[in-house]
């Protein structure tokens, strides 16, 4: 390639550094696909699908950056590649903070009922508004009491 010859000005005919764009896109995909993958226990309990997208994105970004800095006469991307890489780092950091820190901020519940104790009795309205006592729900097989929140 001899496109970059000239009087030292930036040659607009340098190759597009697609690796950087693909890497940045994969980073965004890794972040925004969390809602999707959180629907399935296998990708929610540990967010490996998101982490895989981030990892592949990082490889592309790195490859793009190497091209941009090692052969700048052939490839674009020194400036926007660096910006993409920085943004990707921030996005990944935010993701990791959410998934590995915020989601684990669960109260200790030290006084929660324990194995061997009697489940504290209560009466609450059911989905039809009918007051329902815990004891009424316990069959000869027992009962499963689930405290949950959100849509899953």
């Amino acid at each position: 390639m001899d496109l970059a010859v000239g009087d030292g000005k930036i040659d607009m005919k340098r190759n597009w550094n697609w690796s950087l764009w693909i890497g940045f896109f994969l980073t965004l995909a890794g972040f925004f696909s969390y809602q999707f993958f959180a629907q399935f226990p296998v990708t929610r309990d540990f967010p490996w699908a998101n982490l895989l997208l981030f990892a592949v994105g990082a490889i592309f970004l790195l490859a793009g950056l190497v091209r941009a800095f090692v052969r700048p006469q052939l490839y674009r991307g020194k400036v926007f590649g660096s910006i993409f890489a920085l943004l990707s780092l921030f996005i990944f950091g935010f993701f990791a903070y959410g998934v590995f820190y915020v989601l684990r901020q669960v109260p200790a519940s030290l006084s929660a009922p324990r194995i061997g104790e009697k489940a504290p009795a209560f009466t609450l309205p059911d989905q039809n508004g009918k007051p329902t006592a815990l004891m009424d729900l316990i069959s000869p097989n027992g009962a499963i009491l689930i405290f949950y929140r959100g849509h899953w």
Partner: peptide
């Protein structure tokens, strides 16, 4: 917070 209890027929966890 999410939590699940298995209760037997006597009401014991």
């Amino acid at each position: 917070r999410p939590a699940e209890f298995l209760i037997d027929s006597q009401g014991i966890i």
